[in-house]
């Protein structure tokens, strides 16, 4: 299982990556959408965890670009608002929205569920 964490809050995703590593989950970090795209060109990820509001490319814009590169990639959005589940624009796929601060066990559970649905 390999995860890409994208957020401009560097300390947040660095710490999250360390905690995931302790649980045997490999997680790369990117602090901007541009950086994430570069990394996604050279690696295959199962799930991308994206902050919604970032300088430059926003989370939803990044999702579209990453999806073009890796159609099997699954996405989780991290938001400052409440935890909700919303349908995609075309209704074909549901995006998962998790609220900050994250519950790590719930994040891992959600990642596992997403991978199983592929």
């Amino acid at each position: 299982m390999k995860i890409l964490l994208v957020d401009d809050e560097q300390k947040f995703i660095n710490m999250l990556a360390k905690r995931l590593a302790l649980r045997g989950i490999e997680a790369d970090t990117a602090y901007t959408g541009e950086e994430a795209l570069k990394q996604a060109k050279n690696a295959v990820y199962d799930v991308a965890v994206l902050d919604i509001k970032m300088p430059g490319i926003s989370g939803p814009q990044l999702k579209k670009k990453l999806f073009t590169l890796h159609p099997n990639l699954k996405f989780i959005f991290v938001t400052g608002h409440g935890a909700v589940e919303k349908s995609d624009e075309d209704g074909s796929e549901k995006d998962i929205y998790l609220s900050k601060p994250l519950d790590l066990d719930f994040l891992i559970e959600t990642v596992q569920e997403l991978i199983q649905t592929r």
Binding site: E9, K11, F12, M15, L16, K18, R19, L22, K53, G80, S99, K100, P101, L102, L104
Partner: peptide, 20 residues
């Protein structure tokens, strides 16, 4: 409130890491 959530998220992950 968004800024405060970011701050709390970092503190929460750091506290979680200390527990780990």
């Amino acid at each position: 409130s968004h800024e405060l959530k970011n701050i709390l998220a970092i503190i929460s992950e750091t506290a979680g890491f200390l527990n780990d």
